Simulated assay, not measured.
Amino acid sequence: MTGSAGNTGGTVNAADLAGWIRHAAELVSADAERLTRLDAAIGDGDHGHNLDRGFAAAVAALPADAPPGKTLIAAGRAIVSKTGGASGPLYGTALRRMGKAFGGASDEQGVDAALLGEGLRAALDGVRELGQAADGDKTMVDALVPAAAAYDEALAAGTDLAGCVRAAAGAAERGAEETVPMQARKGRASYLGPRSTGHMDPGAASTALILRALADVV
């Protein structure tokens, strides 16, 4: 990634994005037990292990010499194929929509701060459409919504790409924390009613982890 602080300069290329997927796989693997415990409290108890398997498959599927968009689309397809439960389609859709938002951007051209922001919003839109979830439903949307908003706010303020991603990652982490007192309105957790309160949503937790991986890489 190249660029200077204090402006919207900087780009990420396919190697950066592949590095993101690899680092996300590392963080998910290291945190799989915690994510699974979070899911055991209000869900099926398999989120961490499913996502670990999915991101391992995404790493294995990363193409050589592909442009940025196709790099993420390939990773997303692998996650859909290898991740069990609802997680595969949701996380795979997020990556595929982000990749498609990058259009024909070449590796030489790279993805700039504005285009990366479009990709993040496209990922959010894809998750919303597929999961039919809104913010406040105690899902991964509760991490993605503040992340996209914080990214846009930083971009509008003239922050460089790396700073925008850091802002998004921090907002996602705060969004995940804010799911603890929420009552779930979507998914298996919603069956628990008031008993779903007091627990962090595992999808929001893993979403924050994945965006932290992106911030680390760029």
Rank of each mutant, 00 (worst) to 15 (best):
R166M: 11
R185K: 14
A176M: 13
T179C: 10
R185P: 05
A167C: 01
G163T: 03
V165L: 06
E178F: 10
V165H: 02
G170V: 07
R185N: 11
A171Q: 04
G170Y: 01
V180Y: 05
R188C: 11
V165Y: 08
R188G: 11
A162Q: 12
R174S: 14
V180R: 15
G187A: 10
T179G: 13
A184Y: 06
T159K: 12
G158E: 00
G187N: 08
A189V: 07
G175A: 13
A168D: 04
Q183K: 11
R174T: 15
T179I: 12
E177R: 12
G163S: 06
T179L: 02
R185L: 14
C164T: 05
L161N: 02
T179E: 10
Q183S: 10
A167E: 00
A184C: 13
Q183W: 00
A167M: 01
A172L: 10
A168Q: 05
G158K: 07
D160E: 03
A168M: 07
D160F: 07
C164V: 11
A171K: 02
G163I: 02
T159W: 01
V180A: 14
L161F: 03
D160R: 00
A171G: 02
D160S: 10
G170W: 00
G187Y: 14
C164L: 08
D160Q: 03
E173W: 00
E173P: 00
R174W: 00
G170I: 11
V165T: 03
A162D: 00
T179A: 14
A189Y: 01
P181R: 04
R188P: 09
A176G: 08
V165R: 01
R174P: 04
V165G: 03
A167Q: 01
R174M: 09
V165C: 06
